[in-house]
């Protein structure tokens, strides 16, 4: 729960930084904001989860690292 709140704060901060540059009232603007925030969400979630040694996220990160090593 605390992790989610932290992620939320980071995402809101990011959106506030980006919003003045992109018109969120258009389809393409909203899509860009959603994609950017979504990518940041995944990075923050994985980083915080890995840092806090959350088992499920650790397993996911390790699996990704294995796959990247093989490819």
């Amino acid at each position: 729960m605390a992790l989610s709140a932290l992620v939320g704060i980071v995402l809101v901060w990011f959106k506030r930084q980006v919003l003045p540059w992109i018109d969120a009232t258009t389809f393409s603007g909203s899509l860009m904001i959603a994609l950017g925030t979504g990518v940041l969400f995944m990075i923050v979630l994985l980083a915080v989860g890995y840092g806090l040694k959350i088992k499920e996220i650790n397993e996911l990160v390790n699996r990704l690292r294995e796959k990247l090593r093989f490819s």
Binding site: M1, S4, L11, F41
Partner: peptide, 19 residues
């Protein structure tokens, strides 16, 4: 995992409904 994804959707609520 639904909880952090809910937070993501809350942050992007306007954009999601618009899209």
């Amino acid at each position: 995992l639904v909880i952090p994804f809910s937070v993501l959707m809350m942050v992007l609520r306007n954009e999601l409904i618009l899209i």
